[in-house]
């Protein structure tokens, strides 16, 4: 029992350090045990960090992921004329396992939100998210819909928001270029939202709705509770 105390202390220490790193603009995503061990700014590691940031910022595989209207402008951004491949971000991968960047191009509705979360979870770290269009910011023109999730950040963390309905391909490319700049400078935005988690149905706090659904959903099925009244 008592042996649990010191690690917690240490954890808190690490946590503070990370928080400091975050506050001073050093990204926490690439924090490694090695860096923790070698102190805050050893020369080799900082140079190596810089190099890795440059690498990650220069080249990205995009997940082939279309949702709604914005996906058309995304297609246009990837095809000739706009050609986002000029920035080294034009290789589409069909499998999330091989992608670095997921562009969320459109409205997310209740049925799709858990699936999108799963696709995001399937991507290997480090991964980045560009939210494209008003719908991924707030639900856009469909915000009042009974079925519309009010922004992608309700489900997954978003690094860059590109406003517009839909944004022009140029705007998307600007968004991607900005993201690359951020990554290259080691300052991707920290996760500020607590995304909705899928949890086992049986673990959800029992209330009227859960009781009602209990004969339809198995105890160990994953489910997401979405409270439409609480969202922005």
């Amino acid at each position: 029992m008592s042996s649990q105390q010191p690690p917690t202390e240490l954890d808190r220490n690490v946590l503070t350090k990370t928080r400091d790193a975050r506050a001073t603009g050093v990204d926490d995503r690439f924090n490694s045990r090695l860096r923790e061990a070698m102190g805050s700014t050893p020369f080799i590691l900082t140079k190596f960090d810089k190099f890795m940031n440059w690498v990650r910022g220069s080249s990205m595989f995009i997940l082939q992921f279309g949702i709604a209207c914005c996906s058309l402008e995304m297609i246009h951004a990837m095809m000739i004329k706009h050609d986002v491949d000029r920035f080294g971000a034009g290789v589409p991968r069909a499998s999330p396992r091989q992608a670095d960047l997921i562009i969320v191009p459109g409205t997310i509705v209740s049925k799709f939100a858990p699936r999108m979360k799963r696709v995001y979870d399937q991507m290997p770290e480090p991964k980045f998210v560009v939210g494209m269009g008003s719908c991924t910011i707030s639900g856009g023109p469909f915000q009042e819909g009974y079925n519309v999730v009010k922004g992608a950040e309700e489900v997954i963390p978003v690094d860059i928001h590109v406003p517009g309905c839909p944004p022009r391909p140029e705007a998307l490319i600007y968004g991607i270029a900005k993201l690359q700049e951020q990554v290259a400078n080691g300052e991707t935005s920290p996760v500020v939202v607590k995304p909705y988690e899928l949890e086992e149905f049986g673990n959800m706090p029992r209330d009227e709705i859960i009781e009602q659904l209990s004969d339809q959903i198995n105890e160990d099925d994953l489910a997401m509770r979405y409270n439409w009244g609480d969202s922005p």
Partner: peptide, 15 residues
């Protein structure tokens, strides 16, 4: 991009 792609792909998480 050759260096960037190669190093980035190798440094990705293995799931």
């Amino acid at each position: 991009i050759i260096i960037a792609d190669a190093v980035r792909l190798m440094s990705k998480e293995i799931i």
